[in-house]
Amino acid sequence: MPQIAQLAATYSSQIFWMLIFFGFTFFVVGRGMVPKVMDTVAQRDKQIADDLAAAERARAQADAEEEAWRTRENANRAEAQALIAEARAQAAAVTTERLATAQVAIDATLAEAETRISQARRSAAAEIEDVAADATREIVSRIAGLTLDDGAVRSAVKENLVHG
């Protein structure tokens, strides 16, 4: 076994060169390069974490904005609905009022017309009575040669006109 057989002759060289090359590895690679590599990794991790946080913040902001927009939109819609309802109520009120006015006017016209009609009918009836009385007296005077009292003729005519 050369490890033991050569130990006395080679141990100093082995130890010396091992320290030299492991020392080189430790100081150049371990102390020199590894921290930089790990720094790169840490930087990348940090950037990823930052980006994620930024994305999360942006999402929260978008959510808040959407919520605000929704609230605003709902308020606007409610306002519009209220406006529409008010306009509708106003229009209905105006229509009712106008209808009432028109009805009153129509009623008045109707009443007036009826009065006129009844007046006309009364005067017409009176005229008919006069004509009938005149005609009756004329007929009576011609046929019977009687000169009748005007009041008597008129009451007789009125009686006949009323009872048909």
Partner: peptide, 26 residues
Amino acid sequence: NIAFTNSTLWMAIAAVTLAFFVAGGM
């Protein structure tokens, strides 16, 4: 005695290869 032996040579090769490997990742 600090003779540069075949053992030493492979220590050097290991150290240099390792340094090369890590340097490539920098």
